[in-house]
Design a protein around this nucleic acid. Sequence first.
DNA 1: GCAGTATTCTTGAATGATTCCAGAAACCAG
DNA 2: CTGGTTTCTGGAATCATTCAAGAATACTGC
Lengths: 143, 143
Amino acid sequence: MPTTSEFERILRGAALRVTRPRVAVLSAVHAYPHADTESIIGVVRADLGEVSHQAVYDVLRALTTAGLVRRIQPSDSVARYEARVGDNHHHVVCRSCGLIADVDCAVGETPCLTASDDSGFSIDEAEVIYWGLCSGCSTASNS
Amino acid sequence: MPTTSEFERILRGAALRVTRPRVAVLSAVHAYPHADTESIIGVVRADLGEVSHQAVYDVLRALTTAGLVRRIQPSDSVARYEARVGDNHHHVVCRSCGLIADVDCAVGETPCLTASDDSGFSIDEAEVIYWGLCSGCSTASNS
DNA sequence: GCAGTATTCTTGAATGATTCCAGAAACCAG
DNA sequence: CTGGTTTCTGGAATCATTCAAGAATACTGC
């Protein structure tokens, strides 16, 4: 977990202004991977006191645009954010409880990037979501 | 494109009641792949006259649950539906205009179903979304 | 260190897809 | 044909997210 000054450096490196809300949001995303926006707001407020949700939405968008965080949004879920970027990993989502876990790319480097027929698209990213049941829900449903 | 009576058979086969709205919605999803809910409502109304959006939402949920249609929901997009089910194909989405196209599974049968480390999840489906630019938007952005 | 300027944060309201609710209508079994 | 259940209608509610305008704050050059 990077320190505050490291977060500042990360922000500057992305040509983003360093503000308290931004450092707090970036820190929260690092601390709580796959957290939804409301959770992040809660963490940031616990850290800084009152912060408008608008600011958090704004910061999350700025960080996402800058590529410092990744936004993931499985069907039937609100937007979630994570700080692991640039390593082409994917996610498993539990159909029952919504738990999300990271999964490294299955077949090596970035194989998923190659579609069999790209229909004329120039593809730059492949996003994979595995659906299933987490160990807890799986056990519960077998009983 | 199946006929109305075929749609009826499909519905009965899934243990669903046959109603005019259901046939119309199923038909619309077959006719307009990747259409969003509002478009489907429009098509259904052109066919049957006034139909409540509630009915369409309801039918789409019933069909999705029954496995007759698939719901896809790329980030920053409303829910969309398609009738191709059970053949493990994926999608390319244009970042610029939102166009969606089908892509057959890249590496053969259902390889994506195997995650390198499933974190204890029992996985039953892999959903792949390729992000990029469609040929039209790609050309436009190069100029 | 300090003013100027552009970006960012606050407050509060609006948007829009989706869902909830209660009653009317339609479908299927016997 | 009738009963009973499921589905459809109409309208209102929910909730994540966004828009807008003014106040505050951070970076740039002096």
